[in-house]
Amino acid sequence: MTVKRTTRAAPRRRSVILIAGCVPAGLIVALALVSFFWLPYPLDDTSGGRLSPPGASHLLGTDKLGRDLLSQVMIGARIALESGAGAVAIGGVLGVATGLAAGFANRWVDDTFSALLDVLIAFPTLLLAMLVVAAQSASLGSAIVAIGLAMTAVVARLTRILVKRVLAQDYITAARTSGTSWPRVITGHVLPNIWPTLVVNLALQFGLAVLAEASLSFLGLGAPPPNASWGRMLQEAQATVSTAPYGAVAPGVLLVALVVGVNLIADGLRDTLDPTRRRSS
């Protein structure tokens, strides 16, 4: 009887974490979606008066050029989500593919690959981004590519370790003794077993990518004006933060909310994706 009760209670507790993460993240997704159809003011509308506090006509106030902060923050939400999703797509696909290959490679190839990854991971994302920007130009696209490439190294290293660990398991040998082919072992046993850890990690990487894009934009290496990245908004509000803090508060709060939301989702996923944890937690 008690067993039944705990198995019922556990999923409810987990979904609380998942929902707690989905609320802020969902709100930001909604802001970004609305921005495609409607903005309170166009981004180049400077009619609001400089640095006006939040009020009826400008819900979040205006910046030093008199532009509406809510409109900028909505466009910023779009950019934050795009950079997170874009970087995770690049880092996820390249990282999992190379990590999987390295996990199966012979010792010599594997050692070379690991050494290469260690160098790449030691390489600062900002420096990599500056190189990519220097080779192309400062744009959201090059920022996403840079973040995605930096992420590739981290994801590849994780995938490689996970693959190695799974391949050493008895159930892989057991599957092979019953005549299962390698492709089938990979799709049937290796990927399902590394998937939960990978998904959780990619969700965390999404949050890190959003932060990285904000940092790059703060330094002027991200999306150029008038695209309002949260990082660039923070940078513009920096000079007036003591007299008119509103310009920094809105993007700052949203940035934290998105990253916390995504991390909570990652935590919630960790428990729901792993059936062996379903009982114990």
Binding site: Q169, D170, Y171, A174, T177, G179, G188, P192, T276
Partner: peptide, 24 residues
């Protein structure tokens, strides 16, 4: 070898918990 594994000879291992895929 593959067609022989499972049909020519099958194997039962020592530790059944690790010899079964935990997620399947």
């Amino acid at each position: 070898l593959r067609p022989l594994r499972g049909r020519g000879a099958g194997v039962v291992f020592q530790e059944p918990l690790t010899a079964l895929d935990p997620l399947m």
